[in-house]
């Protein structure tokens, strides 16, 4: 897209909307869509006549490892990335409208500091307030639907199917798919977000897995995680019996050389 020549109107003041799709679903990518057009086109946009002078540029986030990164942080960084890309293409952005789930004012300050020349309007439900965000929302949703439809599963086990449904927790097709694709050792295929509440009922069917890093995490419990995200360890993925000797050898009681290398003498088999 960056190789295509910029339309003439892009060098006049432009507005842009940013919205996301796929925050709620238990599987699939989260997609950030944006839509920009010249300031003078704004009125025409309300008629939803999606004619030529609108450019769209979606960005995708494919995999989830939400044990470490806050979801709002992912969201902010994606929006920043989109604004940067559009500015780098040479579009004269003067106003950017952003939908948010979290604190709007903090988010607005963060964006304004990054891009001093751009006026940011951050609002909850911005997609229903500003046509340019509605457009971005459509871009994001269509891109996500297409990505899910063409998704190639990493897993190659037999009888792997792609009829995920919408990915929303309430969708019976999604539930049925989760049910058919669970595995006692591996859990779900990697398209699934394991830390989402929807997965919780299935954990009783999985064998227990105890992570070394969760043990360390307990010393510093809150590393910027939002309330809505759950630690995988809170979800019954790790055990109640948390004995370190279950997880790894420690070299306990031996000289430092062995301790540093976790080399333990095993005398009983």
């Amino acid at each position: 897209m960056s190789s295509a020549p910029l339309p003439k109107w892009a060098s006049k003041p432009c507005i842009m909307g940013i919205d996301e799709a796929g925050r709620g679903p238990v599987l699939g990518p989260m997609v950030y869509g944006c839509l920009y057009c010249s300031l003078s086109y704004q009125k025409t946009l309300t008629t939803l006549n999606f004619a030529e002078p609108i450019w769209v540029l979606p960005v995708k986030l494919l995999k989830f490892d939400v044990t470490k990164i806050n979801l709002n942080e992912i969201s902010h960084n994606s929006a920043i990335g989109l604004v940067k890309r559009v500015l780098d293409m040479g579009v004269l952005l003067t106003e950017v409208y952003v939908d948010t789930v979290g604190d709007a004012e903090k988010y607005r300050v963060k964006l304004s500091e990054k891009f001093p020349g751009v006026k940011f309007v951050v609002a909850k439900k911005a997609d229903s307030l500003y046509p340019v965000v509605s457009g971005a929302s459509i871009v994001a949703k269509v891109t996500r639907d297409r990505a899910l439809r063409n998704w190639v599963l990493d897993e190659t086990a037999e009888n792997m199917q792609r009829n995920f449904g919408s990915g929303y927790p309430g969708d019976p097709e999604t539930k049925a798919w989760l049910d058919r694709h669970k595995h006692m050792v591996f859990g779900f295929p990697t398209i699934v977000r394991f830390s989402w509440g929807t997965c919780k009922p299935y954990f009783k069917d999985f064998v227990e897995v105890v992570w070394e890093s969760d043990k360390m995490d307990e010393d510093c419990p809150n590393n910027g995680r939002s309330k809505h995200q759950q630690k995988l360890s809170d979800l019954g993925f790790t055990g109640y019996k948390r004995k370190s000797e279950d997880i790894e050898s420690s070299g306990k009681g031996r000289c430092k050389f062995f301790q540093a290398r976790k080399l333990q003498l095993v005398s009983k088999f």
């Binding site: 990493d154 897993e155 890093s213 997880i247 790894e248």
Partner: peptide
């Protein structure tokens, strides 16, 4: 792996772990 899997037995590793 940096974890302990409480399972001992054959498993379709190459189909799931990529």
């Amino acid at each position: 792996l940096p974890c302990s899997i409480k399972h001992d037995g054959p498993c379709p590793v190459s189909h799931y772990f990529k």
